[in-house]
Design a protein around this nucleic acid. Structure first.
Length: 424
RNA sequence: GGAGGGGUGGCAGAGCGGUUGAUUGCGCCGGUCUUGAAAACCGGAAGGCCGAAAGGCCUCGUGAGUUCGAAUCUCACCCCCUCCGCCA
């Protein structure tokens, strides 16, 4: 949520920054300002009446204690009371309207973000490793079938299309990757491991800005008013919502492995083959809660923490800085990690590392007391570290051998318990 | 599913119709003392909104009600906890 004061003071600046996203959201600013002006007018009027009531009530109290008549005063207060009720209803209505509008406006891109309409304007900031030399590489679907690593047909029996059922060595590889990543981030990168619930309340989903705008993409349990979390970002970022943290407690760094649930309503055919885009997938997520002063350094280090997974697995990847038009709703700046997929002959997004600045914390009232004793909104960041199905796919494609087996990366062998994955 | 208890400032915990936006303890910040720290002592600070400012307003889970006046009384809702039952 944007700061209403910023919108009041620099509406042109806000409009201009929003326009760089290309979503047309800048037109909402006029509406917000109109409602805000109306609300403030009503609020001021309301406060004057309340002030008057307080003054008269105090006077009544004084007179009563001296046994003096108060009928006239009481009548006046009653009259003011009626006006207050009406005006209060109005300010509440306007206030709610204003908040609803603000909740649907995306974050402002950071000044450093390249301007652009679509992914073609994204900027590759670095790449690591190189593509493996493979002649006619099989893609993960073929490899998975041959080695019986997952079974999409059987998954469909259970849950419908676009679900994965890992099997045998595939299930074990998935589990090995999870443990490998969580251990790495806890032992070497200083994150605290969390194992959160997978169902979350509506207000948490609003806090991290999946709602209200993206409700059609979410799985919800109407009966219980709960949602299946689409990413552990929701749980980890909301851990401290409605709190005032001490500055000495920051930054907080969390890592969690969780399944993630996405309806992806209307997702098109592109990039959906095999296990690349599914309704449920596992992910190891990194979240940081920081002060505003350090959040951009923390974004750099968070990205590097995620990259480290790919480096240790010796997988070629590149880091892409998203342009304004490709930025997620709440993000001010994002680096995507894209791993090389020989089978797709393309790069696959396996992580999205973003700084949300105070966009989420303003929604969820997450603050810290700074060294001057002033309460300020924290900054929040998150990134996958990493998303599993795509990492899985890239891994087996990159490590496939001429004989049809898959070699297990050295660092993963202690977790997997073998050096290769062979035919049964 | 059944029965009960409770939601107050960073935390714990008083207050139960009128200078109580709130006693106190812990924690926190500043100071004195100390080589430094601890202890002790003194002092400071709830959150938010409107306003250029002066100042004003709101908030004791949320909303409505009673009242001249509500943290305090009534009702509804939300949330948390305990016990019993069922269950992994």
């Amino acid at each position: 949520m944007l700061d209403i004061r910023l919108i009041r003071e620099k509406p042109d600046f806000v409009r201009e920054r929003l326009a760089t996203r290309g979503g047309g959201d800048e037109v909402k600013i006029d509406e917000v300002l109109r409602v805000d002006a109306e609300w403030r007018k009503a609020e001021t009027e309301l406060q004057q009446l309340q002030s008057e009531r307080n003054r008269l009530s105090k006077e009544i109290g004084g007179k009563k204690s001296r046994d003096q008549a108060t009928e006239d005063l009481e009548a006046s207060v009653r009259k003011i009371g009626g006006q207050i009720v009406d005006l209060n209803a109005r300010t509440n209505l306007l206030d709610g309207e204003e908040r609803d509008l603000l909740l649907e406006i995306p974050n402002l891109p950071h000044q450093s973000v390249p301007i652009g309409k679509d992914p073609s304007a994204n900027r590759v900031v670095r790449s690591w490793g190189k593509k493996p030399q493979l002649t006619k590489p099989a893609d993960h679907v073929a490899l998975g079938a041959k080695l019986k690593l997952f079974d999409l047909e059987r998954a469909a029996k259970l849950s419908g299309s676009d679900f994965i059922c890992f099997t045998g060595a595939g299930a074990k590889l998935e589990r090995a990757l999870i443990n490998f990543m969580v251990d790495l981030h806890t032992r070497e990168h200083g994150y605290t491991e969390i194992s959160p619930p997978f169902l979350v309340r509506r207000d948490c989903m609003i806090g991290t800005s999946q709602l209200p705008k993206f409700e059609p993409d979410m799985y919800g349990l109407d009966q219980n008013q709960l949602f299946l979390a689409p990413t552990a970002e929701v749980q980890l970022t909301n851990l401290h919502h409605d709190e005032i943290l001490r500055v000495t407690d920051l930054p907080r760094k969390f890592v969690a492995y969780t399944p993630c649930f996405r309806r992806e309503a209307g997702a098109a055919g592109r990039e959906t083959r095999g296990i690349i885009r599914v309704h449920q997938f596992d992910k190891v997520e990194l979240v940081k809660i920081t002060t505003p002063e350090t959040s951009y350094e923390e974004l750099e280090s968070l990205t590097i923490d995620a990259e480290r997974v790919l480096q240790l697995l010796a997988l070629h990847y590149r880091v892409v800085e998203l342009c304004t038009g490709d930025l997620g709703f709440g993000s001010a700046k994002t680096f995507d990690l894209e791993v090389w997929s020989p089978g797709q002959d393309a790069y696959l997004e396996v992580s999205s590392c973003s700084n949300f600045e105070d966009f989420q914390t303003r929604r969820m009232q997450l603050r810290f007391k700074d060294r001057d004793g002033k309460n300020r909104f924290c900054h929040t960041l998150n990134g996958s570290g990493l998303a599993l199905p795509r990492l899985f796919a890239a891994l087996i494609e990159n490590y496939q051998q001429p004989d049809g087996s898959v070699r297990v990366p050295e660092k993963l062998q202690p977790y997997f318990g073998a050096e290769t994955i062979n035919h049964e």
